[in-house]
Write a protein that binds this DNA or RNA. Structure first.
Lengths: 139, 139
DNA sequence: TTCTTGACTTGGACAACGTCCATCGTAGGA
DNA sequence: TCCTACGATGGACGTTGTCCAAGTCAAGAA
Protein backbone atom coordinates (compact mmCIF):
# COMPACT_ATOMS: atom_id res chain seq x y z
CA UNK A 1 0.00 0.00 0.00
CA UNK A 2 2.67 2.50 0.88
CA UNK A 3 4.42 0.54 -1.87
CA UNK A 4 1.83 2.00 -4.18
CA UNK A 5 2.31 5.54 -2.86
CA UNK A 6 6.07 5.12 -3.20
CA UNK A 7 5.83 3.96 -6.79
CA UNK A 8 3.52 6.79 -7.69
CA UNK A 9 5.75 9.40 -6.13
CA UNK A 10 8.75 7.91 -7.91
CA UNK A 11 6.92 8.36 -11.18
CA UNK A 12 6.52 12.05 -10.53
CA UNK A 13 2.90 11.80 -9.50
CA UNK A 14 1.92 14.97 -7.71
CA UNK A 15 0.76 13.87 -4.29
CA UNK A 16 -2.41 15.46 -2.98
CA UNK A 17 -4.51 14.48 -0.01
CA UNK A 18 -7.27 13.36 -2.37
CA UNK A 19 -5.02 11.08 -4.39
CA UNK A 20 -3.50 9.65 -1.26
CA UNK A 21 -6.92 8.79 0.14
CA UNK A 22 -8.07 7.14 -3.09
CA UNK A 23 -4.90 5.06 -3.30
CA UNK A 24 -5.23 4.05 0.34
CA UNK A 25 -8.86 3.02 -0.06
CA UNK A 26 -7.95 0.82 -3.02
CA UNK A 27 -4.91 -0.72 -1.40
CA UNK A 28 -6.66 -1.19 1.92
CA UNK A 29 -9.31 -3.70 0.98
CA UNK A 30 -8.59 -6.37 -1.54
CA UNK A 31 -12.08 -6.35 -2.97
CA UNK A 32 -13.33 -4.99 -6.26
CA UNK A 33 -14.95 -1.64 -5.56
CA UNK A 34 -16.96 0.53 -7.92
CA UNK A 35 -16.01 4.17 -8.37
CA UNK A 36 -18.89 5.23 -6.16
CA UNK A 37 -17.90 2.78 -3.46
CA UNK A 38 -14.39 4.17 -3.56
CA UNK A 39 -15.88 7.64 -3.30
CA UNK A 40 -18.04 6.64 -0.33
CA UNK A 41 -15.04 5.25 1.55
CA UNK A 42 -12.88 8.23 0.61
CA UNK A 43 -15.50 10.64 1.93
CA UNK A 44 -15.21 9.03 5.36
CA UNK A 45 -11.61 10.16 5.51
CA UNK A 46 -11.82 13.37 3.52
CA UNK A 47 -15.39 14.65 3.63
CA UNK A 48 -15.24 17.11 0.76
CA UNK A 49 -13.57 14.98 -1.90
CA UNK A 50 -15.46 15.29 -5.17
CA UNK A 51 -16.84 12.47 -7.22
CA UNK A 52 -15.04 13.81 -10.31
CA UNK A 53 -11.74 13.64 -8.47
CA UNK A 54 -12.27 9.99 -7.65
CA UNK A 55 -13.09 9.25 -11.28
CA UNK A 56 -10.03 11.20 -12.46
CA UNK A 57 -7.72 9.50 -10.01
CA UNK A 58 -8.99 6.01 -10.78
CA UNK A 59 -8.51 6.73 -14.47
CA UNK A 60 -4.94 7.80 -13.86
CA UNK A 61 -4.17 4.75 -11.76
CA UNK A 62 -5.49 2.56 -14.54
CA UNK A 63 -3.40 4.41 -17.14
CA UNK A 64 -0.34 3.95 -14.95
CA UNK A 65 -1.03 0.24 -14.76
CA UNK A 66 -1.39 0.26 -10.99
CA UNK A 67 -5.05 -0.75 -11.02
CA UNK A 68 -7.10 -2.91 -13.37
CA UNK A 69 -10.51 -1.79 -14.56
CA UNK A 70 -13.21 -4.45 -14.82
CA UNK A 71 -16.41 -4.02 -16.85
CA UNK A 72 -18.22 -7.15 -15.82
CA UNK A 73 -21.87 -6.85 -16.74
CA UNK A 74 -23.59 -3.65 -17.78
CA UNK A 75 -23.19 -2.25 -14.29
CA UNK A 76 -20.59 0.10 -12.88
CA UNK A 77 -16.93 -0.60 -13.57
CA UNK A 78 -14.95 -2.15 -10.75
CA UNK A 79 -11.36 -1.44 -9.81
CA UNK A 80 -8.91 -4.18 -8.93
CA UNK A 81 -5.78 -3.12 -7.02
CA UNK A 82 -4.15 -6.49 -7.66
CA UNK A 83 -2.51 -5.35 -10.91
CA UNK A 84 1.00 -6.60 -10.17
CA UNK A 85 -0.04 -10.25 -10.33
CA UNK A 86 -1.51 -11.66 -13.57
CA UNK A 87 -4.87 -13.21 -12.88
CA UNK A 88 -8.37 -13.74 -14.18
CA UNK A 89 -11.77 -13.44 -12.53
CA UNK A 90 -14.36 -15.86 -11.25
CA UNK A 91 -17.82 -14.32 -10.94
CA UNK A 92 -20.96 -15.65 -9.24
CA UNK A 93 -23.81 -15.61 -11.76
CA UNK A 94 -26.27 -15.08 -8.95
CA UNK A 95 -24.86 -12.57 -6.46
CA UNK A 96 -22.03 -11.04 -8.47
CA UNK A 97 -19.26 -11.97 -6.04
CA UNK A 98 -15.85 -11.68 -7.72
CA UNK A 99 -12.73 -13.69 -6.89
CA UNK A 100 -9.29 -13.42 -8.39
CA UNK A 101 -8.08 -16.74 -9.82
CA UNK A 102 -4.94 -17.97 -11.57
CA UNK A 103 -5.51 -20.46 -14.35
CA UNK A 104 -2.69 -22.85 -15.19
CA UNK A 105 -1.03 -22.01 -18.47
CA UNK A 106 -1.42 -19.08 -20.79
CA UNK A 107 -4.98 -18.49 -22.03
CA UNK A 108 -3.50 -17.08 -25.25
CA UNK A 109 -1.99 -20.45 -26.13
CA UNK A 110 -5.33 -21.97 -27.12
CA UNK A 111 -6.00 -19.44 -29.86
CA UNK A 112 -4.51 -20.88 -33.06
CA UNK A 113 -2.99 -18.43 -35.52
CA UNK A 114 -5.66 -19.36 -38.05
CA UNK A 115 -8.17 -17.90 -35.61
CA UNK A 116 -6.31 -14.63 -35.13
CA UNK A 117 -7.29 -13.06 -38.45
CA UNK A 118 -4.13 -10.99 -38.66
CA UNK A 119 -4.60 -9.41 -35.25
CA UNK A 120 -1.52 -8.82 -33.10
CA UNK A 121 -3.09 -10.49 -30.07
CA UNK A 122 -1.47 -9.41 -26.83
CA UNK A 123 -3.68 -10.55 -23.98
CA UNK A 124 -6.69 -12.59 -22.99
CA UNK A 125 -9.18 -11.57 -20.33
CA UNK A 126 -11.15 -14.49 -18.97
CA UNK A 127 -14.28 -14.40 -16.85
CA UNK A 128 -15.23 -17.74 -15.36
CA UNK A 129 -18.87 -17.86 -14.36
CA UNK A 130 -20.80 -20.08 -11.99
CA UNK A 131 -22.48 -20.21 -8.61
CA UNK A 132 -20.50 -19.35 -5.51
CA UNK A 133 -20.77 -21.75 -2.55
CA UNK A 134 -23.29 -19.54 -0.74
CA UNK A 135 -25.62 -19.18 -3.70
CA UNK A 136 -25.30 -22.86 -4.68
CA UNK A 137 -26.36 -23.88 -1.17
CA UNK A 138 -29.37 -21.55 -1.21
CA UNK A 139 -30.83 -23.26 -4.27
CA UNK B 1 -32.82 -15.74 -40.37
CA UNK B 2 -36.23 -17.19 -41.03
CA UNK B 3 -34.73 -20.05 -39.03
CA UNK B 4 -34.75 -17.68 -36.12
CA UNK B 5 -38.32 -16.57 -36.75
CA UNK B 6 -39.36 -20.22 -37.08
CA UNK B 7 -37.74 -21.18 -33.80
CA UNK B 8 -39.31 -18.26 -32.02
CA UNK B 9 -42.76 -19.03 -33.33
CA UNK B 10 -42.33 -22.68 -32.38
CA UNK B 11 -41.60 -21.59 -28.84
CA UNK B 12 -44.90 -19.77 -28.67
CA UNK B 13 -43.40 -16.34 -29.13
CA UNK B 14 -46.14 -13.93 -30.09
CA UNK B 15 -45.12 -12.53 -33.45
CA UNK B 16 -45.52 -8.80 -33.89
CA UNK B 17 -44.19 -6.58 -36.66
CA UNK B 18 -41.80 -4.98 -34.17
CA UNK B 19 -40.34 -8.29 -33.02
CA UNK B 20 -40.03 -9.50 -36.56
CA UNK B 21 -38.09 -6.39 -37.58
CA UNK B 22 -35.72 -6.62 -34.62
CA UNK B 23 -35.03 -10.29 -35.30
CA UNK B 24 -34.45 -9.57 -38.98
CA UNK B 25 -32.06 -6.73 -38.24
CA UNK B 26 -30.02 -8.98 -35.97
CA UNK B 27 -29.99 -11.94 -38.30
CA UNK B 28 -29.34 -9.82 -41.36
CA UNK B 29 -25.89 -8.51 -40.55
CA UNK B 30 -23.42 -10.67 -38.72
CA UNK B 31 -21.90 -7.81 -36.82
CA UNK B 32 -22.23 -6.88 -33.17
CA UNK B 33 -24.73 -4.06 -32.93
CA UNK B 34 -25.63 -1.97 -29.90
CA UNK B 35 -29.27 -1.62 -28.89
CA UNK B 36 -29.40 1.86 -30.37
CA UNK B 37 -27.88 0.65 -33.63
CA UNK B 38 -30.51 -2.07 -33.79
CA UNK B 39 -33.13 0.58 -33.13
CA UNK B 40 -31.78 2.85 -35.88
CA UNK B 41 -31.91 0.02 -38.43
CA UNK B 42 -35.33 -1.07 -37.23
CA UNK B 43 -36.69 2.45 -37.64
CA UNK B 44 -35.77 2.35 -41.32
CA UNK B 45 -38.23 -0.48 -41.80
CA UNK B 46 -40.82 0.41 -39.17
CA UNK B 47 -40.63 4.15 -38.49
CA UNK B 48 -42.56 4.26 -35.25
CA UNK B 49 -40.92 1.42 -33.35
CA UNK B 50 -40.06 2.55 -29.83
CA UNK B 51 -36.68 2.34 -28.20
CA UNK B 52 -38.22 0.52 -25.23
CA UNK B 53 -39.58 -2.16 -27.53
CA UNK B 54 -36.13 -2.79 -28.99
CA UNK B 55 -34.68 -3.09 -25.49
CA UNK B 56 -37.49 -5.43 -24.43
CA UNK B 57 -37.13 -7.60 -27.50
CA UNK B 58 -33.36 -7.85 -27.24
CA UNK B 59 -33.72 -8.84 -23.60
CA UNK B 60 -36.17 -11.57 -24.52
CA UNK B 61 -33.96 -12.91 -27.29
CA UNK B 62 -31.08 -13.08 -24.81
CA UNK B 63 -33.26 -14.87 -22.24
CA UNK B 64 -34.31 -17.36 -24.92
CA UNK B 65 -30.67 -18.01 -25.73
CA UNK B 66 -31.03 -16.87 -29.33
CA UNK B 67 -28.70 -13.91 -28.94
CA UNK B 68 -25.62 -13.31 -26.79
CA UNK B 69 -25.15 -10.06 -24.91
CA UNK B 70 -21.63 -8.62 -24.80
CA UNK B 71 -20.51 -5.98 -22.29
CA UNK B 72 -17.08 -5.24 -23.68
CA UNK B 73 -15.84 -1.99 -22.20
CA UNK B 74 -17.98 0.44 -20.26
CA UNK B 75 -19.88 1.37 -23.39
CA UNK B 76 -23.21 0.12 -24.67
CA UNK B 77 -23.86 -3.60 -24.69
CA UNK B 78 -23.60 -5.36 -28.02
CA UNK B 79 -25.76 -8.17 -29.33
CA UNK B 80 -24.34 -11.20 -31.08
CA UNK B 81 -26.78 -13.23 -33.19
CA UNK B 82 -24.28 -16.08 -33.46
CA UNK B 83 -25.52 -17.84 -30.32
CA UNK B 84 -25.89 -21.32 -31.79
CA UNK B 85 -22.13 -21.78 -32.19
CA UNK B 86 -19.88 -21.62 -29.12
CA UNK B 87 -17.23 -18.98 -29.60
CA UNK B 88 -15.20 -16.26 -27.94
CA UNK B 89 -14.35 -12.71 -29.02
CA UNK B 90 -11.30 -10.98 -30.40
CA UNK B 91 -11.38 -7.22 -29.91
CA UNK B 92 -9.16 -4.50 -31.39
CA UNK B 93 -7.73 -2.41 -28.55
CA UNK B 94 -7.63 0.60 -30.84
CA UNK B 95 -10.80 0.73 -32.91
CA UNK B 96 -13.03 -1.70 -31.04
CA UNK B 97 -13.61 -4.05 -33.98
CA UNK B 98 -14.98 -7.39 -32.76
CA UNK B 99 -14.51 -10.78 -34.43
CA UNK B 100 -15.88 -14.13 -33.37
CA UNK B 101 -13.16 -16.73 -32.83
CA UNK B 102 -13.07 -20.38 -31.83
CA UNK B 103 -10.20 -21.35 -29.54
CA UNK B 104 -9.05 -24.95 -29.57
CA UNK B 105 -10.02 -26.81 -26.44
CA UNK B 106 -12.22 -25.85 -23.54
CA UNK B 107 -11.19 -22.65 -21.73
CA UNK B 108 -12.61 -24.12 -18.53
CA UNK B 109 -10.04 -26.92 -18.56
CA UNK B 110 -7.19 -24.64 -17.48
CA UNK B 111 -8.85 -23.65 -14.20
CA UNK B 112 -7.71 -26.18 -11.60
CA UNK B 113 -10.21 -27.15 -8.91
CA UNK B 114 -7.94 -25.58 -6.28
CA UNK B 115 -8.61 -22.27 -8.01
CA UNK B 116 -12.38 -22.67 -8.07
CA UNK B 117 -12.96 -21.89 -4.40
CA UNK B 118 -16.06 -24.06 -4.20
CA UNK B 119 -17.78 -22.36 -7.13
CA UNK B 120 -19.82 -24.51 -9.51
CA UNK B 121 -18.11 -23.07 -12.56
CA UNK B 122 -20.17 -23.49 -15.70
CA UNK B 123 -18.64 -21.34 -18.40
CA UNK B 124 -15.74 -19.13 -19.37
CA UNK B 125 -16.04 -15.96 -21.41
CA UNK B 126 -12.79 -14.99 -23.06
CA UNK B 127 -11.92 -11.69 -24.68
CA UNK B 128 -8.69 -11.73 -26.66
CA UNK B 129 -7.27 -8.25 -27.17
CA UNK B 130 -4.83 -6.85 -29.66
CA UNK B 131 -4.51 -4.67 -32.73
CA UNK B 132 -6.49 -5.51 -35.82
CA UNK B 133 -4.59 -5.55 -39.14
CA UNK B 134 -5.81 -2.09 -40.10
CA UNK B 135 -4.84 -0.44 -36.82
CA UNK B 136 -1.51 -2.27 -36.66
CA UNK B 137 -0.62 -0.96 -40.14
CA UNK B 138 -1.55 2.61 -39.22
CA UNK B 139 0.99 2.69 -36.41
C1' DT C 1 -65.62 -13.38 -39.82
C1' DT C 2 -65.94 -11.05 -35.54
C1' DC C 3 -65.09 -11.00 -30.68
C1' DT C 4 -62.26 -11.17 -26.68
C1' DT C 5 -58.44 -10.88 -23.89
C1' DG C 6 -54.04 -10.78 -22.22
C1' DA C 7 -49.70 -9.90 -24.07
C1' DC C 8 -47.19 -6.30 -26.48
C1' DT C 9 -46.04 -1.43 -27.67
C1' DT C 10 -45.61 3.32 -26.82
C1' DG C 11 -43.39 7.53 -25.20
C1' DG C 12 -41.90 10.04 -21.74
C1' DA C 13 -40.10 10.30 -17.12
C1' DC C 14 -36.62 8.59 -14.45
C1' DA C 15 -32.20 6.47 -12.82
C1' DA C 16 -27.34 4.96 -12.88
C1' DC C 17 -22.95 5.85 -14.39
C1' DG C 18 -19.71 8.65 -16.25
C1' DT C 19 -17.64 13.08 -18.53
C1' DC C 20 -16.81 17.95 -19.15
C1' DC C 21 -15.59 22.49 -17.98
C1' DA C 22 -14.85 27.01 -15.83
C1' DT C 23 -13.16 28.35 -11.61
C1' DC C 24 -10.66 27.89 -7.39
C1' DG C 25 -6.92 25.92 -4.55
C1' DT C 26 -2.47 24.13 -3.56
C1' DA C 27 2.03 21.13 -4.03
C1' DG C 28 6.40 21.67 -4.74
C1' DG C 29 10.20 24.01 -7.03
C1' DA C 30 12.74 28.68 -7.42
C1' DT D 1 8.10 32.81 0.94
C1' DC D 2 6.26 33.25 -3.51
C1' DC D 3 4.70 31.49 -8.16
C1' DT D 4 2.52 28.87 -11.20
C1' DA D 5 1.11 24.95 -13.41
C1' DC D 6 -1.32 21.06 -12.18
C1' DG D 7 -5.09 19.17 -9.52
C1' DA D 8 -9.77 19.61 -7.23
C1' DT D 9 -14.42 21.18 -7.22
C1' DG D 10 -19.32 20.80 -8.26
C1' DG D 11 -22.80 21.23 -11.16
C1' DA D 12 -24.42 20.70 -15.85
C1' DC D 13 -24.64 17.49 -19.29
C1' DG D 14 -24.54 13.00 -22.08
C1' DT D 15 -25.29 8.13 -22.74
C1' DT D 16 -27.34 3.96 -21.81
C1' DG D 17 -30.90 1.60 -19.90
C1' DT D 18 -35.40 0.86 -17.03
C1' DC D 19 -40.11 1.70 -15.64
C1' DC D 20 -44.92 2.54 -16.02
C1' DA D 21 -49.71 3.72 -17.28
C1' DA D 22 -52.40 3.81 -21.20
C1' DG D 23 -53.35 2.35 -25.77
C1' DT D 24 -53.06 -1.40 -29.40
C1' DC D 25 -53.17 -5.79 -31.48
C1' DA D 26 -52.19 -11.08 -32.42
C1' DA D 27 -54.29 -15.12 -32.26
C1' DG D 28 -57.51 -18.40 -30.48
C1' DA D 29 -62.70 -19.01 -29.67
C1' DA D 30 -67.19 -19.05 -31.34
Amino acid sequence: MSDLLERLRARGWRMTSQRRVVAEVLAGEHVHLTADEVHARAVERLPEIARATVYNTLGELVALGEVVELSMDGRAKRYDPNAHRAHQHLVCSNCGLIRDVRPSGDPLAVLPSTERFGFAVSKADVVYRGLCPGCARAR
